[in-house]
Simulated assay, not measured.
Amino acid sequence: MTPDTVMIFAAGRGTRMRTLTQDRPKPMIPVAGRPLIEHALDMAVAAGLRRAVVNTHYLPAPLEAHLSRETRLSITLSPETELLETGGGLKRAAPLLGLGPVFTMNADVVWQGPDPFGALVSGGVPGPGGARLLLVPRANAVGHPGAGDFALDQSGRPVRRGDAPEAPFVYTGLQLIDPAAALAVPEPVFSLNRLWDAMLAQGRLRATVWTGRWCDVGQPGSIPLAEAMLADG
């Protein structure tokens, strides 16, 4: 069955945004006239998803008020009293997500191109304890000057940067993952990287390369780049 639920990571402090996050959480920063969280919700709705779980922590009131007015998706909040990082956030939200693979995505990116959720599903839904990452070529990662995150081996499986001669693909922040993998970690605070390393060792991590363009809106200078990308589309 095609997953119909997405967890949106929205709890971070957004410190790289400097003054823009003094009075609001990063997902409420406007890009092209709309809060970043709306761009994430638009993508989920367009893909036919029905449910979203959103974790909150830093200055949550504006974001929670905004989400309370969302009528296109069923929204469930997963408040965090401390920052749990991405893996810990997924672990805390797991009881709200239900059984089987779900999408997870970052709230601070914008997209231009074909349905990224559909691209992940078309590559194959991961089995128990596994995940499928959505990658984009570095040339399609707008405003991302650094190195890539992954390469692909001859069978199309992801290989970490550092374990390959080069890493031509950037992780987009969108994946399909079995939340049970996070429940198996005893600590409350940890990164998704811990889960991926275990999956790589077990042969349970897969990847799909997306053909659209993507922009990580992680700092003020990324906002005009994202807006120009969207306008160009």
Rank of each mutant, 00 (worst) to 15 (best):
L41W: 06
S222L: 12
I177C: 04
R18S: 10
V142K: 01
G123H: 05
P114H: 00
A207M: 03
T208A: 15
M105P: 09
A228D: 11
G88C: 08
A107I: 02
A228F: 04
L90A: 07
G129F: 01
F103Y: 14
R34P: 09
A228V: 07
L200P: 10
L63R: 00
T15H: 14
A167Y: 09
G221S: 14
L205N: 02
V159W: 12
D149I: 05
A131P: 06
W214D: 03
Q175G: 01
M1P: 13
V121S: 02
A61D: 10
F117N: 00
I177Q: 04
P25R: 04
A181Q: 02
L183F: 11
A201K: 12
A151W: 13
A141F: 04
V217A: 11
G203H: 03
S68A: 15
L63Y: 00
G146F: 15
A141Q: 06
R13P: 09
V6E: 10
D42R: 15
M28F: 04
A207F: 02
G124V: 03
D4I: 02
K26R: 14
P126V: 00
G89H: 14
F9D: 04
G14Q: 07
L99F: 09
R50I: 00
R206C: 08
D23C: 03
S68F: 00
L63M: 01
V6F: 07
E82G: 11
A40K: 08
P186W: 11
G143W: 12
P126I: 00
F9P: 03
F103A: 09
L41N: 04
I37C: 06
E82F: 11
L230W: 08
T76K: 13
P101F: 06
P3A: 12
R204Q: 13
D163S: 14
F190M: 10
L63H: 01
M1D: 14
P101H: 06
A228G: 06
D232W: 08
G233K: 05
T104Y: 03
H144W: 15
T56D: 03
S155A: 15
D149F: 07
L225C: 09
A32T: 10
V110C: 11
E227N: 13
A119V: 12
L67R: 00
L83F: 11
A201L: 14
T86A: 12
W214A: 00
A94T: 04
H66I: 01
L73H: 13
K91G: 03
I177L: 10
R157E: 05
Q154S: 15
